[in-house]
Design a protein around this nucleic acid. Structure first.
Lengths: 207, 207
DNA sequence: ATACCGACCGACTGACCGGTCGGTTTGAGT
DNA sequence: ACTCAAACCGACCGGTCAGTCGGTCGGTAT
């Protein structure tokens, strides 16, 4: 009954995948308005007519590209979420997995976090939902466990989750230049900052 | 010799200011490409011809709008930077001043932080420089003092500065919905998170 | 061989938009 | 009251680009 998923794609699927890949590369490099459908088609080895045979509009192509990305990231991060250990260890695993992704996919994640809340379009809700499942909610799950186990202080898991993602982006992104050396050093840096803060003396603060 | 700066603007200055204000409102609400010069002119009560009498191009209007904003923010934050107290107190002052700004200006700051590193255009360098003076370098100055005085742990002040701004945005922005009540609660929350981290037990971590 | 169909092509269109330009209005100085 | 320059208008141009559509091509079933 359960058919083995054939690894070989049909011609149509292969072309769609090529178009989505080309779109990802271009949308990451330039912003939506500066990428023309001709450019995407050209990069994918089809013409504009071919592109419109597979996607109803530029916007729906953009949405398809993001959904495709969310699905892959969702699967990738599930392992880290399901793994055992302290929440710090599990966040480290998840972040390491993220850092191991090709630059293009990391950049896309940045772009998505940037734009997801202001995105308008037909499949806005589906898109927002898929994104939340792909990243923020997975981190939230780990953070919830951390709070439950007394490892993290009481606090809104949603805000903590977004804060963690924001810190990862800052520490990893180019603003930081090469002030921090290797990827693992950066990883420890962001974990330290998130868990322990920037103060020299941990008794400081109002808490 | 030093002429008293007249508070009343000339007609030309007043119109330029109106155009910049209209541009700010629109660019904050929609993104650059989706805002037409006709829309800006209309909102400012002039025609496109009038707009182009004051600004050489859409891009230079955009740059002027940002420079105008940077200047105002620079002046606003200077007081907090120059004030006395612990670095935590001074960052609290600066952040409170920022939170007291009208929503539009806070949104613009978010937009700028988002885009400044990918901005391309003639006055790119001038713009980046002005922005750094307006926000990151002012925060950096406070953080440097904090490190010098042993209040903050050793670390790259630049990264810490960006991290702080990122945390402020997360805690204040709409993703957080109304999970945190008043502005002052949000302010304390972000300061706690930045200085002390999210861990329940401050001895955790690798440090 | 023939009929058929999905995949793909590429020239075209219609709308939009940044920027221009010749002309008109406004108001400060005399 | 006259002058002149700056401020402003609005029709227009040139280019760009999303989306269309009639048609071709290659594979597949009969």
């Amino acid at each position: 009954m359960t058919q083995i998923t054939t690894q070989t794609l049909s011609r149509s699927e292969a072309t769609s995948a090529r178009i989505i890949a080309a779109a990802r590369t271009l949308f990451v490099a330039r912003n939506y308005a500066d990428v023309t459908t001709d450019m995407i088609a050209g990069a994918a080895g089809v013409t504009k007519g071919g592109l419109y045979h597979h996607f109803a509009s530029k916007e729906s192509l953009y949405a398809s590209m993001m959904l495709d990305d969310f699905e892959r990231k969702h699967k990738l991060f599930e392992q880290a979420v399901a793994s055992s250990g302290t929440s710090r260890e599990r966040l480290a695993r998840l972040t390491r997995d993220f850092l191991a992704l090709p630059e293009e996919e990391r950049e896309l994640a940045r772009l998505v976090r940037r734009d997801i809340n202001t995105f308008t379009g037909n499949d806005r809700d589906r898109l927002v939902r898929a994104y939340q499942l792909a990243l923020p909610e997975q981190i939230e799950a780990i953070i919830r466990d951390g709070i439950r186990d007394g490892e993290l202080a009481q606090g809104d898991p949603r805000i903590l989750s977004w804060s963690f993602v924001a810190l990862v982006e800052v520490v990893v992104s180019q603003y930081a230049y090469d002030a921090l050396g290797s990827t693992s050093q950066r990883l420890e840096h962001v974990l330290d900052l998130f868990f322990d803060g920037a103060a020299a003396n941990p008794t400081g603060g109002t808490r």
